[in-house]
Amino acid sequence: MREEAHRFGRARHLVGISGLPEGPRGETGVIVLNAGLVHRIGPFRLHVELTRQLNAAGYPTLRFDLSTVGDSAASGGQQTRAQQVCADLDDAMKLLGERAGCERFVLFGLCSGAQNAHVVAATDPRVSGAIFLDGYAFRTLGYKLRYYLPRLADPARWARRLMRRAGGAPATPKTTPQPVFAVAPAPREEVIADFTGMVGRGMKLYLVYSGGISNYFNHARQFRECFGKVMSHPAVTTRYAAETDHTYILTGDRARLLDGVGGWLSRNFPPASAGRHP
């Protein structure tokens, strides 16, 4: 495996690290997008561990910083954020294509990275697969039932509430955690249409959602509740990791995530013939 540092892009404003496997390479490269504002190494170096593990399995990779994130600058153009993301990914795919000969690409994104990967995957025919970690989701009726019913049936919770009403105990002040990572909402029908379009053109999808987003997602069934029957399509794989946090702070959780990603890639894009699908 060899890593190369690049300044690249239409305005030479992007910074990234390509990872090139030794020996024969597949035609599918994996491109890793920023998670929130964390620079390209990823939360707790997740993206470094991921790309090196994939390089060892034969996949060329690129982890890079989108415009204005990490070490990358603004491109200087007058574009919306979505247009910028698409143009940045176009630059990234061209670079990895030049360095490794890839013709097809799998995008990997966590949180806002999943949202950005979704935007590109929905429109760019070179994207043949996507791995969305804690991407789009919606509070469904099932979510609310799973969230509220146990609380309604909890006598200790009722006792605390009654005591507060009677003035017997001061209410515990609630602190609002600062949002560090967040996925902006999109219309549900639009997201479903995007997923349907992706699998319709032969893309493979891997959705991994964590217990760290329990404020809007709390069960494996919620994939289907959110997005309907497209989640049962053979090209879609889902996994709900209730025990983990949003950014995989524990190394064992990270190792299990990376094993899952590696296994999904090898099943859907075998390195020897990676990318050879419609």
């Binding site: 939360p43 170096r45 949003h246 524990l250 190394t251 959780d253």
Partner: peptide, 21 residues
Amino acid sequence: AGRFNRPRSHSDVADQWLGFD
């Protein structure tokens, strides 16, 4: 509790400091 739905085991967090082996 802001990070995990349930406390993790001691072995889950062993030999690490805040995200790193």
